[in-house]
Design a binder for these strands. Structure first.
Lengths: 127, 127
DNA sequence: TTAGGTGCAAAACCTTTGCCATCCC
DNA sequence: GGGATGGCAAAGGTTTTGCACCTAA
């Protein structure tokens, strides 16, 4: 399947890259609609899926039912505030050897790992 | 709100504790129904939520839309096979100091962390 | 007795899909 | 031209909820 460059797909990617956060599909849809007012939700979902397949973006399946997306490519870790629900990127260094150690110990083929912290963010712990 | 001990809630917890895996709500529903044939799905969902609130069980929000649940209380890590979708518990030692290090670095209050590996399980990598 | 719980069914959500028109290469 | 995409709306699947009836304490 040869990908075609469409305005819709490009805009979805742009919005996500510029977001700097981890928006839900619905939030992305809202922002894209400011640029392409008649874009449909189905198109946003389809393109989010395609961009994932192409490795352009990643789907974050953190807690909760709703998926969130992010545009960064390098692996990094996340912190989710249990009060406000916001998700932050962390600078914590990524342990590159972790995958290999687990692979050696389990016999599984380890492709990647994902580390998520949970607690209260700076703003919420003050309240 | 004072909790009452009902057969339904007790059975949901029992099933999950004995499962040793990470079943979806639907799978739990199926197994509970072998014991209480006329239990409703709503009750299973309600009790899964209550048991979470009480810290008896945990919801795993790994990839995919469907939530999975587990009965273990101590922190431990998971491996998800990207082909068969199964989730395995790992023996990998839990890094107890990790939360504190991140807390010190970020100023967030870190309650816990969750580490998930992704790849191919032993069976699937052979195929 | 009575607040909490259950069953049932409908509603609410999020996401995917089918279809046909449209657009890119 | 022809296959990839988009828009629209309906379908699909999971989870939540309202309500009347129970039931544990």
């Amino acid at each position: 399947m040869i990908r075609r460059e469409t305005r819709q797909r490009k805009t979805v990617l742009d919005v996500l890259r510029r977001a700097g956060s981890h928006p839900t599909a619905d939030v992305i849809y809202g922002q894209v609609r400011e640029i392409i007012p008649n874009i449909s939700k189905g198109t946003v979902y389809r393109n989010l899926k395609i961009l994932q397949e192409d490795g352009e973006i990643a789907e974050l399946s953190l807690s909760g039912t709703v998926n969130r997306y992010e545009g960064r490519k390098e692996n990094h870790y996340h912190f989710r505030c249990m009060r406000c629900g916001d998700v932050f990127d962390l600078d914590e260094p990524v342990d590159k050897g972790l995958d290999e150690r687990v692979a050696a110990r389990t016999g599984f083929e380890v492709a990647s790992h994902r580390l998520e912290f949970c607690g209260l963010c700076r703003d919420c712990r003050r309240k």
